[in-house]
Amino acid sequence: MRSLLRFFIHFRVFFLFLALEITSLVLVVQHNQFQRSVFLNSSNAIVGKTYETSNTIYEYFGLKSANQSLAEENTELKQRLYSLENELRFLKQDTSYQGRKQLAIDKSYTFITAKVINASTNKLKNFITLDKGRKDGIKPEMGVINEHGVIGIVSSVSDHFSVVLPILNPASRISAKVKDKSQTGSVVWEGIDDRIALLEEVPLYIPVHVGDTVVSSGYSSIFPEGIDIGKVKVLRKENDNYFYIEIELLANFSKLSYVDVIEFNNAEEEKKLEEKTRKEAEK
């Protein structure tokens, strides 16, 4: 017993080294298994505050480009306002027009504006931290977009901060389609280049061309249908059934400032209904 004790004391530095390395490995493995644990999460209070403070400094350097993108968005919104006003005028005239009932559908989405306070693009697994959280109405599984297109999906929230799993993360899969085509596929990211992603599972019989716009499919109810994701850049046959499609992402992930978190008002209802149907089907 005593010699065993002496053995441990003699090699105490080595055993301490082993213990610390094993602790680190446990953290690494847990991180891979259960996404991000709440404790080691950049949405926890101290980390969030630090990034928020540093962001207020960085913000001044990006004012010019932020202004520009806000102005661009303004113009685009104005244009949309005019086209909607026109439509409204047209619909008021033609009271027998049946299609107007469909207008109500899009109202089921509301937007929460949030500021990006930390974002990585150079890692293999990237994350984005937002300055709004549970108290502002943000919940996991909500979609995040900016004026250029889809950014990602909220993965975890604390009271005042939330962490987004962006397209630039191998764990992200976003249901998408080529604009005006019905067949859906998934947008995934394979690492390295923060401007390029892949659109998978598009069959060869769909007529796709280089330069086509890829948009969200609206199937998952995380994003409304038709939000821009990217443009087809490289297109070739992957095998006998599917295309290999590289898309150039429209959102510039290294220069994010403000984003919109999308809340689907009827998400609970839809989920419950789907769940119920599934259970009944299993019976």
Binding site: S24, V47, K123
Partner: peptide, 30 residues
């Protein structure tokens, strides 16, 4: 040497918490 190990672990872990990479820096710096 024990103190050095603890400092390495602490520093790695703090940087991990900020970078969202739990354990990565801690392992390498220990």
């Amino acid at each position: 040497r024990s103190a050095l190990l603890f400092i390495g672990f602490g520093m790695g872990l703090i940087i991990d918490v900020f970078s969202g990479t739990p354990g990565y820096n801690a392992f390498a710096s220990v």
